[in-house]
């Protein structure tokens, strides 16, 4: 009952407003526990790809510790300093061993969950083409795969299956059934939309507003679009009058 909750909050002006949101964060996998080595690697990376480095300026990053053995001595404080020095904003850690979790707690870094399995596949499939700001995927996006069109639209010609996740800063077009999770406008663009030829999604989200469609939904299995107006998420027929 979101309406009731909102009403209750309005009745108490000044109360905290806590709402849910889905965010996409960059993940930095730490290759060694050595802060100096990280500094060198970041420097190399910046020289090799200045454009990507510029995009990541002041980006929140999650530190993935899966490659660091739990017993290795980890100078987390120094590592955080290196990251901040490189204009990255560490906001949490994941895949931390128990000792590392304590360490993170000391540095006020939350432990983030999700994607616990080490053998995560794939960014975009090999034949993906990024052109004129749109990322075109001509193969199915399968369970466990994740495709992100950074800074533009995503076009999927094949199915997006359950357990797959597609994200874009812009719109998402799926010219096949959308069965997985689709998140458009992930950097906050509320005008982004999702279009699909059959809506069977596990989750649809625009700029952090999300909904988990159910089979009893009127648009289930139909050609649909998802968009927002006034912080409300709408699911409507494609080519319908709301367009």
């Amino acid at each position: 009952m979101p309406g009731t909750a909102a009403a209750a909050q309005e009745a108490r002006p000044g109360a905290l407003r806590l709402s849910g949101g889905v965010f996409t964060l960059s993940v930095l996998t730490l290759e060694s526990p050595d802060a100096q080595q990280l500094a060198t690697r970041l420097q190399e990376e910046r020289q090799r790809n200045p454009a990507a480095a510029a995009l990541l300026k002041n980006a929140p990053v999650v530190l993935d510790l899966s490659a660091i053995p739990g017993e290795a001595s980890l100078a987390l404080g120094e590592i955080l300093a290196v990251l901040r020095g490189a204009q990255l904003l560490p906001v949490g850690v994941r895949n931390a061993a128990p000792g590392q979790q304590q360490l993170a707690g000391k540095h006020h870094l939350p432990i983030l969950r999700g994607q616990e399995r080490p053998a995560e596949p794939v960014a975009a499939p090999a034949s993906a083409v990024q052109q004129r700001g749109a990322l075109l995927i001509d193969q199915p996006v399968r369970s466990g795969q994740r495709v992100y069109a950074r800074g533009g639209d995503l076009i999927c010609l094949g199915v997006v299956n359950a357990g797959a996740e597609v994200l874009a800063d812009g719109h998402i077009h799926v010219y096949a059934p959308l069965r997985g999770r689709a998140l458009a406008g992930v950097s906050g663009d509320e005008t982004a939309r999702i279009f699909c030829s059959s809506l069977e999604a596990e989750l649809v989200s625009i700029a952090g507003l999300y909904r988990m469609p159910e089979p009893h939904l009127e648009q289930w299995g139909q050609a649909s679009q998802v968009f927002t107006t006034n912080e409300q998420l709408h699911i409507a027929p494609l080519g319908g009058r709301n367009t």
């Binding site: 053998a119 596949p121 794939v122 499939p125 199915p140 399968r142 357990g163």
Partner: peptide
């Protein structure tokens, strides 16, 4: 199977 197909396509 879907998952393993994704892995084949990528890894």
């Amino acid at each position: 199977s879907d998952r393993i197909l994704g892995i084949i396509a990528a890894r």
